[in-house]
C-alpha cells in the first residue's frame, strides 16, 4: 500500500498549492470516497448474497430455499442432523472420498514434480531443452480434452487381473488421471523455484560427502518447503473442485466425490431437499474457505503465476 500513500501525498501536496483548489479537492475527494464506498457495499452485497441465503436455508426447518426472513423463525440444526443420517446421500463418505483423493493426488504431484524439477534445474544433458519444451507443449492441452480416451483407457486397465483398483469407478484411476494432468505445469513452476536456490549449496553438501540424492533430500527440499506446501494446497483445492473427471469415471454412489454427490440433493426425485443441500454445501465449502483465509498470502502470491481457478 506504500505506493498509494506516496501517490495520495503527491496528490495532496499538489492540491496544497492554492487554498481555493484545496477546498474543491477535499469536496470532490469526499464525493469520490462516498462513491467508492457505495461501490464496495454493492460488491460486498453481490458477493455475500448467495452465501447468506445458503446459511439461512441450512438453518431453516422447512427444507426449502424460501424463507420469510433472513434468519428463519425456529432456526434449527435439523438439516445437519439429517445430513449425517441419510443413507441415500452418504455425505460424510463423499467428503472423505474427496479429501482422500485430493490428498493422495497432492502427495504424488509434489513428490514427482520435485524430483523432475530438480533434474531440470541442476543437471545439463542433451535433450533437456527439448524435454522442457515437450512437457510444456503436452501440458497446453489439458488432459480433460482427452476424456473419451481416458475413459476407454481406464476401462481397459480395469480388465487386467490384479489392476482392477485402477480401473473405472475407482479412486485409484481417478488419482492417476489427476496426478498425471498436474505434473507438467507444476514441474515448470518448481523448476523456476529451484533455479533460485544457489547451486553452491548442493555442491558444498557433495563436498561434505553427500550423494546427489542426499543433497536434494536434506539440503534443497527443506529450503523448498514453502513452495512444496503451496503447491500441495493448490493441488488439493483444484482436485477437490473437479467435477468432469469424477463425473465420467465414477459410477457408484459409494465411490462418488463430493462434487458428484452434491448434485444428487437437488436433481431428480430429491429436488426439494434444499435444506439438506444447503447444510452439505456449507460443510463442503468450509475446509477450502478456511485454507484460503488462513493461507491468503501464500496462495494469492501463486495467482500471478497463472494458477487459474473458476
Amino acid at each position: 500500500m506504500s505506493s498509494t500513500d506516496v501517490q495520495d501525498e503527491a496528490a495532496v501536496s499538489a492540491a496544497n498549492r492554492t487554498a481555493k483548489r484545496y477546498r474543491s479537492v477535499t469536496v470532490s475527494r469526499r464525493i469520490n470516497i462516498a462513491i467508492k464506498l457505495f461501490i464496495a457495499l454493492l460488491a460486498a452485497t453481490f458477493s455475500l448474497y448467495p452465501v447468506i441465503w445458503i446459511i439461512s436455508a441450512a438453518l431453516s426447518p422447512s427444507n426449502s430455499l424460501v424463507n420469510e426472513t433472513l434468519i428463519p423463525p425456529g432456526a434449527t440444526l435439523d438439516n445437519f442432523v439429517r445430513l449425517w443420517s441419510d443413507p441415500q446421500h452418504p455425505f460424510l463418505l463423499w467428503m472423505w472420498n474427496s479429501i482422500l483423493v485430493s490428498a493422495i493426488t497432492a502427495l504424488i504431484v509434489v513428490s514427482l514434480c520435485a524430483l523432475g524439477a530438480y533434474a531440470f534445474s541442476r543437471f545439463r544433458w542433451r535433450g533437456r531443452r527439448t524435454g522442457l519444451l515437450a512437457i510444456l507443449l503436452v501440458q497446453l492441452f489439458p488432459n480433460i480434452l482427452a476424456i473419451t480416451s481416458l475413459f476407454l483407457l481406464l476401462q481397459q486397465i480395469g480388465k487386467i487381473p490384479g489392476l482392477s483398483w485402477l480401473g473405472l469407478n475407482t479412486h485409484g484411476g481417478l488419482i492417476l488421471i489427476y496426478s498425471a494432468g498436474a505434473l507438467g505445469f507444476n514441474t515448470w513452476l518448481m523448476k523456476g523455484f529451484f533455479d533460485s536456490i544457489p547451486r553452491e549449496l548442493d555442491e558444498s553438501a557433495k563436498i561434505d560427502g553427500a550423494s546427489q540424492f542426499q543433497a536434494f533430500r536434506y539440503v534443497i527440499l527443506p529450503l523448498a518447503r514453502p513452495i512444496l506446501a503451496t503447491m500441495a494446497i493448490l493441488s488439493i483445492i483444484g482436485t477437490y473442485a473437479d467435477f468432469l473427471v469424477a463425473r465420467v469415471m465414477l459410477r457408484s454412489s459409494d465411490e462418488y466425490t463430493l462434487a458428484v454427490g452434491l448434485t444428487l440433493f437437488i436433481r431428480g426425485q430429491y429436488e426439494r431437499e434444499w435444506g439438506v443441500f444447503a447444510a452439505a454445501a456449507l460443510l463442503g465449502a468450509l475446509p477450502i474457505v478456511l485454507i484460503f483465509l488462513i493461507l491468503q498470502k501464500q496462495l494469492i502470491g501463486g495467482l500471478s503465476r497463472g494458477a487459474v481457478k473458476g
Binding site: 460486498a44 452465501v51 430455499l65 473442485a241 462434487a259 454445501a281 477450502i288 474457505v289 484460503f292 481457478k309
Partner: peptide, 21 residues
C-alpha cells in the same frame, strides 16, 4: 475479504447454490 469470498468457495458448490437462487 468479503469480495474474495466467492473465489474461496469451490466452484461446484457455488454453481449449485446459484441454481437454487
Amino acid at each position: 475479504s468479503i469480495c474474495i469470498l466467492p473465489y474461496t468457495i469451490p466452484g461446484f458448490i457455488s454453481v449449485l447454490i446459484w441454481v437454487g437462487l
